[in-house]
């Protein structure tokens, strides 16, 4: 079978038992997720749970369905079979920044903030704070197509964080980040965990798996504890 068939409910070195909000059940519970594109089976009966205050890394080889699973969890892609149950507001950061090329950062914030009922002033204030934390050049007014890849990605991430979502679905959110911003990103992950957010992050950075609570490997059928990436990968 070439399709990814993983279960994410096993325990890693940190199964989240003592994490904030752990006793209230998962914020994301996907079960039996099946997805194929034409004749190609991508996901085959994947189960996944993410609890409040838990950071779960989704790893696996290229094309094994990580981004597809994240999109299914976000509700943007429909699975062929299986179901996803979620509680709480979702913040979704896609791999390719879903930005509007000719809007600047403040305009993005005003537009995305309106979805939560925030006024323009509230959305821009809250968003600028997030952007400053990510070392985004706030206030330069450049439209998103004129930003560097890493800077666009920071805006992409800040938009996912706007509105204080309880569930964070992040698809390689640090792509293009410089070293400082990359380290800063994982510090933020720790803070989100402490704040009780459920974080599901697609990553290829196996060196950072010690900073997550659980690893779900879509290439292999059993979950692997942090710090135990497959040899040769």
């Amino acid at each position: 079978m070439t399709a990814a068939s993983a279960t994410g409910t096993g325990t890693g070195t940190g199964d989240g038992a003592n994490l904030p909000g752990r006793g209230r059940g998962p914020l994301v519970a996907a079960s039996g997720i099946v997805k194929h594109y034409g004749a190609k089976h991508v996901l085959d009966g994947v189960d996944l749970t993410v609890h409040p205050g838990e950071v779960v890394a989704l790893v696996g080889e290229n094309g094994c369905g990580k981004s597809t699973l994240l999109r299914i969890c976000a509700g943007i892609t429909r699975p062929d079979a299986g179901r996803v149950e979620e509680r709480g507001r979702i913040g979704y950061c896609p791999q390719e920044p879903g930005l509007l090329e000719l809007l600047n950062a403040d305009e993005h914030l005003a537009l995305f903030g309106a979805a939560f009922g925030l006024s323009r002033k509230e959305a821009v204030a809250a968003g600028r704070q997030l952007l400053e934390e990510l070392a985004f050049p706030v206030g330069d007014g450049a439209v998103s197509k004129d930003l560097s890849g890493g800077t666009r990605q920071k805006l992409n991430l800040a938009l996912a964080l706007l509105g204080d979502p309880e569930v964070l679905l992040l698809d390689e959110p640090y792509q293009g980040f410089d070293t400082g911003s990359y380290v800063n990103f994982w510090d933020h992950v720790s803070r989100w965990r402490a704040a009780g957010r459920a974080t599901l992050v697609v990553t290829h950075m196996l060196s950072e798996l010690s900073r997550v609570d659980r690893v779900v490997d879509l290439t292999h059928p059993t979950p692997r504890p942090p710090g135990f990436p497959e040899a040769g990968r």
Binding site: G75, Y92, P94, P97, G98, L100, F112, A115, F116
Partner: peptide, 12 residues
């Protein structure tokens, strides 16, 4: 077309 599914996801 890339941004609008995100906007719908969060409340539009």
């Amino acid at each position: 077309r890339e941004a609008e599914p995100r906007l719908v996801l969060i409340g539009f």
